[in-house]
């Protein structure tokens, strides 16, 4: 078995504001990330898959299929979007990068077996919000 990791980029805006907390509490908790009109990041996302080598290609994953799946399920939904306003999941959850990474895994798992019926399997997704912080979610952590 071998693990292949592909890196993608997208830019999006968000605002961290927990509906269950008051305005003062939100400001205290999230600081500048709570600024009312939101702000943006250049996100970097790594998608890791694991599988055996295919003898015909000498590879573990068809990158064209992977790129297509990631583009359709994740990049098109997030790229140049306001995550709070334009991604359904973030109407009810705070678009922290923890939740964003979980949402990316959820989206990839949805149609994974249609695109890769015989493997490889999705192992994990890691998203860096800036070059100084990154969040990693294993596929098995998400239903």
């Amino acid at each position: 078995m071998i693990r292949v990791t592909r890196r993608y980029r997208f830019s999006a805006s968000h605002r961290l504001h927990a509906a269950g907390l008051g305005d003062a509490e939100n400001r205290e908790l999230y600081g500048k990330c709570n600024s009312p009109f939101g702000h943006g990041h250049n996100y970097e996302m790594e998608v890791s898959v694991r599988g055996p080598l295919d003898e015909r290609s000498g590879g573990a994953v068809d990158l064209e299929l992977l790129d297509g799946l990631v583009r359709r399920e994740v990049l098109e939904a997030f790229e140049h979007r306001n995550l709070n306003e334009e991604v359904a999941a973030f109407r009810t959850t705070v678009p922290t990068t923890e939740n964003l990474t979980r949402e990316a895994v959820r989206r990839l798992k949805q149609n994974w077996s249609t695109v890769f019926p015989a493997g490889p399997r999705l192992e994990k997704v890691a998203i860096a919000e800036t070059s100084r912080n990154a969040f990693e979610v294993s596929a098995h952590e998400i239903e």
């Binding site: 078995m1 071998i2 693990r3 292949v4 990791t5 592909r6 993608y8 990158l63």
Partner: peptide, 13 residues
């Protein structure tokens, strides 16, 4: 490339 890498941990993994 900067956007594609492979990890190998031996046959057992």
């Amino acid at each position: 490339t900067a956007d594609l890498y492979v990890d190998y941990f031996g046959e057992a993994q």
